[in-house]
Simulated assay, not measured.
Amino acid sequence: MEWPEMRYKELVLVPDLAEDDGMYAVKLVIRSPDRIQHTTGVLGDFPCPIEALRFAFQYGMARIDHRPLPSPEWTVQEWHDRQLAA
């Protein structure tokens, strides 16, 4: 499936999501205008693709701006605990 790309300060942020066992792992490709690209490692596992995309874009913008990199707001264990409680 194609995921949305985002332009930010002349760079293109391209998320790469993979679904596994109800969770979404995300990597991010940061591409410059001269087609040089950098790919992150897996940034985390997320309960839905929207959360994964949101985090990937936040991460990419922080990296480009040389700001502190974000951390996911929850852990996989917390997600599994919520699922068991429901």
Rank of each mutant, 00 (worst) to 15 (best):
W74P: 00
H66F: 03
K27L: 03
R82H: 10
S71G: 04
C48R: 13
A62H: 14
E51V: 07
G22F: 03
G22A: 05
G60A: 12
Q37I: 01
Y24F: 13
R67F: 04
V76E: 03
L17K: 09
D16F: 12
E5D: 01
D65R: 06
E5R: 10
E51K: 10
F57W: 04
P72N: 04
M23T: 06
D81A: 03
I64L: 05
H38Y: 15
R67K: 13
E19Y: 01
D81Y: 00
L28P: 01
A18Q: 14
Y24H: 12
F55P: 10
L11M: 15
D16M: 14
A18E: 15
V14F: 00
G44N: 02
D65Q: 05
M23S: 11
Q58C: 12
M23H: 03
W74S: 15
R82S: 05
L69F: 00
L17G: 12
P72M: 02
G60D: 03
R7C: 02
H38F: 13
A25F: 00
V76Q: 06
E10P: 00
P33L: 04
R63L: 11
M6H: 05
G41V: 09
R7L: 14
P33M: 06
L69S: 04
R67P: 00
V12E: 10
V14T: 13
S32P: 02
Q37A: 13
I30P: 05
I50Y: 10
W79N: 08
H38Q: 13
E5L: 06
F55A: 09
L53W: 03
I30W: 02
Q77P: 00
P49V: 14
D65S: 05
Q77V: 08
D16W: 08
